[in-house]
Design a binder for these strands. Structure first.
Length: 526
RNA sequence: GUCCCCAUCGUCUAGAGGCCUAGGACACCAGGUUUUCAUCCUGGCGACACCGGUUCGAAUCCGGUUGGGGACGCCA
């Protein structure tokens, strides 16, 4: 079989981390199996769909290296086919237009089929009974069954469902007397539009049927038909509804496997009927567990970090994010975590996807990103980080060769590209200083005089390199009675304004004699 | 409320009835390397939600309880 899967986002906002994870799993499955990965933009909600959202989606996919096969399929362009399918169902008696009061046109409603003997997805679950509120009549018509149930506290709640779930229905009153038998009236209901209102109903007994499918990830999933309703497939205004469009397009695109978030499980039960009604084999399903945020809640608009673009602008590497996301709800089965794209593709199977939800962990992503960062070649690192500095707008007049040297010094302690902004002290005399650290380390008179001594030693020397700098610092420490090494941190703050960074001797050497002396003089005083 | 789903360290996970005294990773703690910082190395802390059942044997199978999530639109 030629495997064909699709990623079908609706472009109504930014792509968030859950969406893109779905795309990643779809893509991984397609690439692993040698099938096709198709992109379908579900833009039937014309009011909320925007071109900007489509653009950012495409950009995020490209950034993460998720490529797609064939042309992008725009759902809105296939509306005619959706409507045609609905008309056909109307003609075949699989759908109907309810009578509506008022001038607005009626929608088209798909009717869950009454006769399901030839439908392998429907099975008999056994006899069932439901207590109903005798105060409210049970209403039965071609548009379904309507009744009220009493809860423990005696509160009455209304329910309606498709007739399809109520085979062999008998309605009994409180004495057990049968008031209605559905099999006797079913022809009248469907062919002659007969309606019934049965007062004093106390109990419904019927043969329960359920719709079943085998999910590749979750295993066998079933839902009783008596808890399902017929569904609108075309709105009163004549536009197709998601369910119809989605299924028609899957048929159109010859989709064989549907891999999507498990918030769609309930839709699947209905879509299976739609596939059958259209006469297309039901695809195989795999429902992915959700990703929840760091508080364990589903992602919502409030989770600023959820947008894929944010990860990019914060400096995360696409390969790191991809790798991390692939491990959310899936694992190769051994202890590997950091894996190349190819290793992930080779190891990926839907059967190994977990069925419980996974919590997003920034710490782990950060660690993963660090591992990828450490692998970047110095040249590429210098190149990438230059671009970031450029976008931060402070590269004018900076020598790129010198910049590359600084990058080489700083690479091992850079976790995220935007941290480059802390390097300005290498290039400018104006830079941010950590005021607290200055107060803490540079107030002591003895330290100041020791720093002054170092300046003198540097000035008197013709050499300026790591070795002599280290020697001078030790010498000054000894002269001032300061423990060896204790001058390092004050010096760092004096020349960089920061408490962290590369080795202090290397940093001073990189800065050069002139700048170093100038900054030391500003502290030690002369 | 009804229906559906889920449940192993704080987090991501390994685990297909005996290889489990439950393994790995992140985080955390301690020590070491780096005369700073980061990296790195070593060690430590730390979980089968609960109750029953099946079995010689259960994290694993079954039932129930609890907890969490999802779906119940002329949104997608």
């Amino acid at each position: 079989m030629d495997i064909r899967v699709r990623f079908a986002p609706s472009p109504t906002g930014h792509v968030h981390i859950g969406n893109i994870r779905t795309a990643i799993f779809d893509w991984l499955f397609a690439r692993h199996s040698g099938g096709k990965f198709l992109l379908r933009v579900e833009d039937t909600d014309r009011e909320r769909s925007t071109q900007a959202a489509i653009d950012t989606l495409l950009e995020c996919m490209k950034w993460l290296g998720i490529d797609y096969d064939e042309e992008i399929f725009y759902q809105s362009k296939n509306a005619a086919a959706h409507l045609k399918a609905a008309e056909k169902m109307l003609l075949d008696g699989k759908a109907f237009r309810p009578k509506v009061a008022g001038p607005e046109p009626a929608p088209i409603i798909f009717k869950l089929p009454w006769y399901t003997d030839d439908n392998p997805d429907v099975r008999i679950a056994g006899p069932a009974e439901l207590q109903v509120d005798p105060a409210a009549p049970v209403k039965i018509s071609s548009s379904g069954i309507h009744f009220s149930q009493l809860n423990e506290k005696g509160k009455s709640t209304e329910r309606s469902a498709s007739l399809a779930g109520y085979h062999q229905l008998k309605i009994l009153d409180s004495t057990g007397k049968c008031l209605f038998e559905i099999e006797k009236e079913i022809e009248n209901i469907f062919k002659k539009d007969a309606t019934f209102e049965i007062a004093n109903s106390a109990k419904l007994i019927f043969q329960r049927r359920e719709i079943v499918f085998k999910d590749i990830i979750k295993g066998e999933l079933a839902k009783p038909l008596d808890s399902m309703k017929d569904l609108v497939i075309v709105r009163g205004d004549g536009t197709p509804v998601f369910h119809l469009a989605n299924v028609c397009d899957d048929v159109e695109q010859k989709i064989t496997h549907i891999v999507r978030g498990d918030d769609h499980v309930e839709n699947t039960y209905r879509h299976i009927f739609l596939f059958r009604a259209i006469g297309y084999p039901v695809p195989l399903y795999a429902h992915l567990p959700m990703i929840v945020n760091q508080s364990g809640k589903p992602y919502s608009k409030r989770d600023g970090d959820a947008y894929v673009g944010d990860f990019r602008s914060k400096g995360y590497l696409p390969d790191a994010l991809f790798n991390y996301l692939s491990l959310l709800g899936w694992s190769p089965g051994d202890d590997r975590e950091k894996m190349t794209r190819k290793e992930i593709i080779d190891a990926f199977t839907l059967e190994r996807v977990k069925s419980s939800s996974a919590q997003f962990d920034m710490n782990k992503l950060g660690n993963m990103n660090g591992q990828y960062m450490a692998e970047i070649s110095p040249a590429k690192f210098a190149d990438e980080i230059w671009k970031v500095a450029e976008s931060q707008g402070w590269t004018a007049g900076i020598d790129q060769v010198y910049f590359a040297k600084v990058a080489g010094l700083m690479q091992s302690r850079t976790k995220l590209f935007p941290q480059v902004s802390a390097w300005k002290f290498f290039f400018f005399d104006e830079y941010e200083k950590d005021g607290k650290a200055v107060n803490k380390f540079l107030q002591d008179a003895n330290v100041k005089s020791a720093i002054r001594k170092i300046s003198e030693l540097i000035e008197a020397s013709s050499d300026f390199n790591i070795d002599v700098l280290q020697k001078f610092i030790r010498e000054s420490e000894n002269l001032s009675g300061i423990q060896e090494g204790k001058l390092n941190q004050p010096l760092r703050i004096a020349v960089t304004g920061q408490t962290t960074g590369a080795g202090i001797y290397e940093t001073m050497e990189m800065l050069g004699r002139e700048r170093t002396l100038k900054r030391l003089a500003a502290i030690g005083g002369n």
